[in-house]
Design a protein around this nucleic acid. Structure first.
Length: 128
DNA sequence: CCTGTGACCGAAG
DNA sequence: TCTTCGGCCACAG
């Protein structure tokens, strides 16, 4: 029911980038979030890719976006060939106290932000 | 008014 | 552990 509504409703609508940025700004220093988590909070885990698209343009946002706190579901930095940015991202996170293991992975159970005050829209997809 | 360009995810084999 | 595949669109130039 709730599930079906989610498939019929468009979640990536005009202003999507702005909604992504607003959510990412709520992640405090020393924590991380994932593309999929942001996508789920905005309406559907399927649009994680679009969250990535939005982050690619984070520099165009009116207000600063802590883009470095967004990593992928494996707990790794998505470099997509841009190793310079990936290294900067890692440095920024380490500066905030986020630890990486030998494989360059962050323990999401420990650092992922839970968005405790997030208010789910009525037509939000069932997260579980 | 087009068009190209993107930082993903989970399931299946 | 690896690859492939479907999901599916705003936005800057």
């Amino acid at each position: 029911m709730l599930r079906r509504m989610a498939t019929e409703r468009r979640v990536v609508t005009p202003g999507f980038h702005g909604r992504v940025f607003r959510l990412v700004r709520r992640v405090p220093a020393g924590h991380v979030t994932t593309y999929g988590q942001i996508a789920t909070l905005l309406g559907s885990p399927r649009v994680a890719r679009h969250v990535g698209f939005a982050m690619a343009g984070a520099g165009h946002a009116d207000e600063p976006v802590p883009w470095h706190r967004v990593i992928n579901s494996k707990g790794m930095i998505s470099h997509r060939g841009d190793f310079a940015r990936a290294q900067l991202q890692r440095e920024l996170l380490e500066r905030e106290g986020v630890e990486f293991d030998a494989r360059g992975r962050v323990d999401l159970r420990r650092y992922a932000w839970g968005f405790p005050d997030y208010e789910w829209p009525d037509d939000a997809v069932d997260p579980g």
